[in-house]
Design a protein around this nucleic acid. Structure first.
Lengths: 172, 172
DNA sequence: CTTGGAATGTCAACACGACTGACATAAACT
DNA sequence: AGTTTATGTCAGTCGTGTTGACATTCCAAG
C-alpha cells in the first residue's frame, strides 16, 4: 500500500478518480500558483540587489557543492554557458563567488562562495525555507511524503535518477 | 492523523524530522527540478509557434473561465496590464482569442477562445496532463492527496482562499 | 611534437516576458 | 459635469534565455 496506491475497499472507478482530467487540471493549476509562492520571497530580496532568479540558482548550487565545475552547473541548471556566464561574471565581479583554476585539470574552474556570497545565500534560503517549513508543518509529514513522491515523478525521466541521488546521497 | 500530521508512536524529535533544514532544502530543490519538468512539454510546443509560457497561461485561464474579464486575468496571472496586453494582442491578432465588449458594462472585455484557440489549448494541456497523470499514477492517490495539501500551503496566504475556491468550486 | 578536441570564456545580436511611467479613450457612477 | 473605472497603448528598461562565431587553454592521442 501507499507505494502501489489504491485504498482498500474502493471500486475500480473510485480508485482512478484521482486521475480524472479535472483532478489533473487542478494539479496543474496548483503547480502554477504554488511555484509563484515558492519564488516570491527570494524574488523580493533579489530585486533589491538588481539580481534575479538565475543568480539565486547559481548561488544555491555553488553553496550546495562547493568547488563544483562550471560544466556541472550547466547541466544542473539546464541553460547555455553564455547565459550562465553572464550571471557568474556578475557574481564574481560583485565578490560573491570565487572562480578557482582546477588543480588537476587547469581548464576547469572550481566555484566557491565567498563570505559575502554565503551571507546572501543564507538570507535567500532562510526566506525560502521559512515558507517551505510552514507549508510542510501545516500539511503534516504524511502529506510531505506524498508531495515528494509526486514531484520526483514529475522530473524528466532522464534527469530523475541523477538529480535524486545528487539531492540525497542516502539513496538506492 | 493525516491532517494534524504525526504518526502515532513517534517521539517528539522523530515527529519533527521532516522539518529539518536538510529536508526543507530537498523540498526546495525538488520544486525547482519538478517545475522544469512540468513546463518542459508545453514549452516545446509553444516554441514551434513563437509563443511562450505567458501565452499558455492566458490561453489556459481563458479556456477555464470563458468570458472572463481582462481585470480578472490580471489578478490571476499577477502581472501588469502592459505585460498581459502584449500577449493578448498577439493572440487576438492570430485568431486564437476573441475579445467581446461586455453586455452590461461596455468598458469590459470578455475573453473567449476561438476554435483555433481551443485546438492549441487542447494540445498544450494534453501534453501537460500526460505528465501529470503519469506522475500521479506512479505516486498513487495518497501521495497525490499529500502533494495537493503541501502545494496549497505554499500559495501566498492572501491568494490561497480565493484561488482554491476558484480552482474547485466544491469547497468550503 | 603536433594535432585534435574538450573546457571555458567572450562578443554580438536577438527574443521574450516582466517592469515603470505616461497618456488616451470610453463608459459608468455620483 | 466631473470623477472614477476598465482597458488599451507607446516608450523605455531589465533579467534571462537563445544562436552563432571565435579565442584561449590545456589534456591526450597519433
Amino acid at each position: 500500500m501507499g507505494q502501489s496506491g489504491y485504498s482498500k475497499g474502493a471500486t475500480r472507478s473510485e480508485q482512478l478518480l484521482f486521475l480524472t482530467d479535472d483532478q489533473l487540471r487542478q494539479g496543474i493549476e496548483l503547480m502554477f500558483f504554488a511555484y509563484r509562492g515558492f519564488t516570491a520571497d527570494p524574488d523580493r530580496l533579489l530585486a533589491d540587489r538588481q539580481y534575479g532568479r538565475a543568480h539565486h540558482r547559481a548561488i544555491h548550487f555553488i553553496n550546495r557543492r562547493p568547488g563544483l565545475m562550471v560544466s556541472d552547473l550547466l547541466v544542473i541548471l539546464g541553460v547555455t554557458k553564455q547565459s550562465l556566464n553572464r550571471v557568474l561574471r556578475q557574481l564574481v565581479e560583485d565578490g560573491l563567488v570565487e572562480s578557482r583554476v582546477g588543480r588537476t585539470d587547469r581548464r576547469q574552474r572550481n566555484l566557491h562562495l565567498t563570505e559575502k556570497g554565503r551571507a546572501l545565500e543564507q538570507e535567500l534560503s532562510a526566506a525560502q525555507r521559512r515558507r517551505m517549513r510552514t507549508a510542510f508543518s501545516n500539511a503534516g509529514p504524511d502529506a510531505v511524503q506524498g508531495f515528494r513522491q509526486v514531484l520526483e515523478q514529475m522530473i524528466d525521466a532522464d534527469l530523475r535518477d541523477r538529480v535524486l541521488g545528487w539531492m540525497d546521497p542516502t539513496r538506492p
